[in-house]
């Protein structure tokens, strides 16, 4: 099957995320489940439609991509197996890989450190916020 440019791009996101945005039926169970809902300017259920429309720029520039907690609630509950959290992760990857954008700079870290801050927090934040 021949594909439009947009479809080819979506195919790449599909491969990278392991999630098929076309399966989304806009039920909103992800958005209903999301603990970070209040922090997100683009809501979890919108990730699939933004990708399908090709509005990657907006996703990439959004605050939402960085506010996902990675808690897997949407991944667990999605009835269509779209698992929006994976699309959020893919968006972060695009920011980090293609644009070299990172949400956390090593220089920031010393200031953020506290006595009891666990290593797990630092490595997780680096993994989630940077390439």
């Amino acid at each position: 099957m021949s594909m439009t440019e947009l479809e080819k791009n979506i195919e790449l996101i599909k491969e990278m995320s392991g999630s098929d945005p076309y399966k989304c039926m806009r039920c909103g169970k992800c958005t209903a489940s999301c603990p970070a809902y209040s922090e997100m300017d683009i809501k979890p259920h919108q990730f699939a439609s933004y990708i399908i429309r090709g509005d990657m720029e907006e996703l990439v520039d959004s605050k939402a991509a960085w506010k996902c907690l990675g808690c897997f609630a949407c991944i667990e509950r999605c009835p269509r197996d779209v698992q929006p959290g994976k699309l959020v992760d893919a968006t972060r990857q695009i920011v980090a890989r293609q644009r070299g954008g990172d949400y956390l700079q090593p220089e920031e870290v010393p200031e953020l450190l506290t006595e009891d801050l666990p290593q797990q927090l630092l490595v997780s934040a680096f993994r989630r916020y940077r390439r």
């Binding site: 909103g28 169970k29 958005t31 209903a32 489940s33 809902y37 809501k43 259920h45």
Partner: peptide, 12 residues
């Protein structure tokens, strides 16, 4: 009940 109102853009 924690839900989404997709048309009004709210988490309920």
């Amino acid at each position: 009940v924690q839900a989404a109102d997709l048309l009004d853009g709210k988490q309920i």
